[in-house]
Structures are given as C-alpha cells and as structure tokens.
Nucleic acid binder design. Sequence first.
DNA 1: GAGAACAATCGTAATATTGCAATATAAATT
DNA 2: AATTTATATTGCAATATTACGATTGTTCTC
Lengths: 109, 109
Amino acid sequence: MGLTKTEMFTSEQNQLAQLLKAMAHPARIAILQRILVSNTCICGDLVEELGLAQATISQHLRELKSVGIIQGTIEGVSVCYCINPVTWKLLETQIGAFLGSYKLKADCC
Amino acid sequence: MGLTKTEMFTSEQNQLAQLLKAMAHPARIAILQRILVSNTCICGDLVEELGLAQATISQHLRELKSVGIIQGTIEGVSVCYCINPVTWKLLETQIGAFLGSYKLKADCC
DNA sequence: GAGAACAATCGTAATATTGCAATATAAATT
DNA sequence: AATTTATATTGCAATATTACGATTGTTCTC
C-alpha cells in the first residue's frame, strides 16, 4: 500500500508524526542546524554547504515549510528562510511531553 | 533515486534522523504512548487496540526495536516490549539540544 | 526590455515505506 | 506429539521519498 491509515489515529498523533517526519532526514536536520546557528535567515548558501543539488535543497526546504517549521520571505533575488517560532514552540511542547512522560521503573523486561 | 546520501552528513545528523524517522509514524507513536502509559510492557494487545493487522504491528515493533527505542523479551508464549532507557535518554538529550538551541531574535524574516 | 542571478517546479528514475494475507516459527497446554 | 496461542517473516501491491537535470519563474541591474 504505502498509504498511512491516518484515520485510525488521533489528530495529535498524526500531527506529531508529521512534524517528526519533516525533521527525520539528515539533510533537513543539517538545514535546520544551519538556520539555528546563523539565526538570521539563509537561502542558497545551503546548496554549496550541503553538497546537494539545488533542486534537492529546494525540495527539502519546501517540505520543512509545508509543515510550518520554517518560513521564507523574498529578499531581493534570493529567499530568506528562518524558524517559525510558533511551530517550533509547538514542537518543543509536544515532543517534550511525549519524551518526558517516560519514568523508569524497576519492574520492566 | 530514493536513496539518502548519508555520506554527506555527520554521524550525529544521521543518527538523530534515524531515531526521528523511527518515531515519525502515527502507529509507532501510538505504540510508544501505549508502552509509556502501562509502563509494564505489552505485546499483542496493540493489535486489538490499534486496529491494524498483526503483521503490520509486528513490523512497526521491529522498526522501533531495530533502532533501539524499545526492547523485547519473550514472556512465555507472548513477547513483552518496553522502552530502552538508554536510547530514550539519548533521544531526550539529542532532541533537547537540537530544539533548545533556538533563541528567538527580533531581526528575522 | 535584455540579461544575470537565484529559487521553484516538472519530469523521471531508483529506492523505501506501508499494509496485509499467507505462512512459518516458538512456546505452552493438553 | 498434537493443538492452541502468540508473534515473526515472506511476498506482494500501492504509494511515498529521495535526488537530480532541465526548465520555468522572479527579481534585480543595466
């Protein structure tokens, strides 16, 4: 099939999965790290720095943008991308709650 | 292609991407949440509760196990799965550092 | 407006993922 | 040993992802 059965899960589960999936690629992690370092936005520098084709980088950027993790504004000839604070905060909250809900107990396998 | 160019990224980036990817599916999030709630491990209850075929659940469990997020021990006829504390701690550290490295500044796009 | 510079989109090939039926394997029970 | 119960594996079809060359849009500069 290759088609996730989203209707069987809660919207929270689907949303978290979607956000995680958007980050679950080394190139997209690298892109986000690059944005995190030079807080002020970037654009086609990524093509040189990551060693992937322009079309590929653009595709990864679109993926991050489509779930709202980053946002882009046209800055003359180039495009400036940066973190979307709202989604980032959501990510921190959701993942934090998820990971934080684990408490180690002795009686486990 | 469909083949990620892992050689272009650091092992940290690849590792984090792999862990995120393992969690980036609503069924696997649901499985983990189920384990987190009933700390003591589970097994084929998931098949009933999630409404997916047994083969599908087993496959998702294997995926989570293969990256070390969960671990399973044979408990008589059934198998008991639970969180692997070491990997979970690693996840918290890595994701925490990643998400936490963002500081909102005014001069952004 | 013509050209340059940058980024987005299209089209395509290779590979991966998702889901399930069917089958196989393993452990407990009779 | 045969049966039952629980899980894993295999094989397959449908769909998704990754990557890139080629092309198309945009915006700036001349």
